[in-house]
Design a binder for these strands. Structure first.
Lengths: 205, 205
DNA sequence: CTTATTAAGATACGACCGGATCTTAATTAC
DNA sequence: GTAATTAAGATCCGGTCGTATCTTAATAAG
């Protein structure tokens, strides 16, 4: 006891007096704190400091697990949102499938909260290292699903078989571009226009 | 002299001993310092502190003129780059014009330096207020030029007259989307693909 | 059970932010 | 020329960042 002669130490911040959480229990608490802080403050105002305080610990503990705010928030979102992405629309028509896909993306954005999405985008653009680590993930979002949809459409005779990947990803790319540039999900009118006036004419046999 | 009993005051940072720059002269010095710092450190490492130090003044002087880093850097770029945007390509064919336009954009990006562009993008995404202040500017980049190009093409009989604005901005939008997502200017192959496989088929009479 | 290892949590560091205050040059008004 | 106004530049503030260090619980190893 060379450092603290004061009898009243500065109140250990975590609830249980002198318990010290570890491993999964601690990690869950941290992620929950991040999630709560995200709801309470929003992405822009979310600080590592605030999350640590909410979890009753210090920043160092956060930095031992995540590189920074964006990774922490993404971890929180992964935990608190099932991320039910898997479902490929199958409405029976190419037009219906693509529209459904875009609506799906629209819903996803709305759920996540645009403010969080743009905040994350900001952090990702600012850091090349960070960006490259999710580049593939985001870039491929359209590809797989559209391949399936187009395959089925081609088998039904609705589309050619030799659709280039650029055309295949047109709907999702244009959708994303709208989000980037307008900072708001595309309106229903724009979605329909993407599909009817741009995409479908380029895919017909 | 109640505050500094030390005889050696901390070396007034601006060169001329006790001259105090003002107005345009000062502003030029600040902008030059920002530009130099941008070249020396790059956007990501450019701090207001460093620019102020380089200009031999303090941050407060910078904040009196610009809201923050992005506006300061943009001011520096405006000063040090003629921004010769005006020229609308006129090659005699729709295909040539659009290709020229995309190459122009490609060159612009290269000149500015991708690192700076992505850094700016990061700051803009992070701040809704900031974003909305340049939204129109960036959003409209394609529109005007493409309108002119398409008008001429339609008069030559190369394109329909009733091209929707979404199709009109397809090339620039897809180009931008590539930049956003790949964090690198589109290859020549991609540019040609945008024009030949996507844009031109949608514009023919 | 005792000892060694791990890592939680506290604390301190230097950097930068954005703003505020204060003194004092530089400028303008009279 | 003198006085009033403006704003440059220095300094300080509280906040956050990311890192490093230290103590000491919690766990694992023997």
């Amino acid at each position: 006891m060379t450092r603290s002669p004061e009898p009243l130490q500065p109140q250990p911040r975590h609830s249980g007096g002198k318990t010290r959480r570890r491993g999964a229990a601690l990690e869950t608490a941290l992620i929950d704190a991040a999630w709560d802080e995200l709801q309470a403050a929003g992405y822009a105002s979310l600080t590592m400091e605030a999350v640590a305080a909410r979890a009753g610990t210090s920043r160092a503990v956060l930095y031992r697990r995540w590189r920074g705010r964006p990774e922490l928030v993404i971890a929180a979102m992964r935990r608190h949102r099932p991320m039910l992405s898997g479902e490929v629309p199958d409405t029976g028509s190419l037009r219906g499938d693509v529209l459904a896909l875009l609506h799906q993306m629209s819903g996803r954005l709305a759920e996540t909260g645009p403010e969080t999405v743009y905040g994350l985008l900001g952090d990702y653009f600012a850091d090349a290292e960070l960006f490259s680590r999710i580049q593939d993930q985001v870039l491929q979002i359209g590809t797989g699903v559209m391949a399936t949809i187009l395959k089925r459409a081609a088998d039904r005779g609705e589309a050619r078989h030799d659709i280039s990947s650029m055309i295949a990803t047109l709907p999702t790319d244009l959708f994303r571009h709208q989000i980037f540039l307008a900072r708001t999900p595309p309106s229903e009118r724009v979605i329909v226009e993407i599909v009817d006036d741009v995409f479908l004419p380029l895919t017909r046999p």
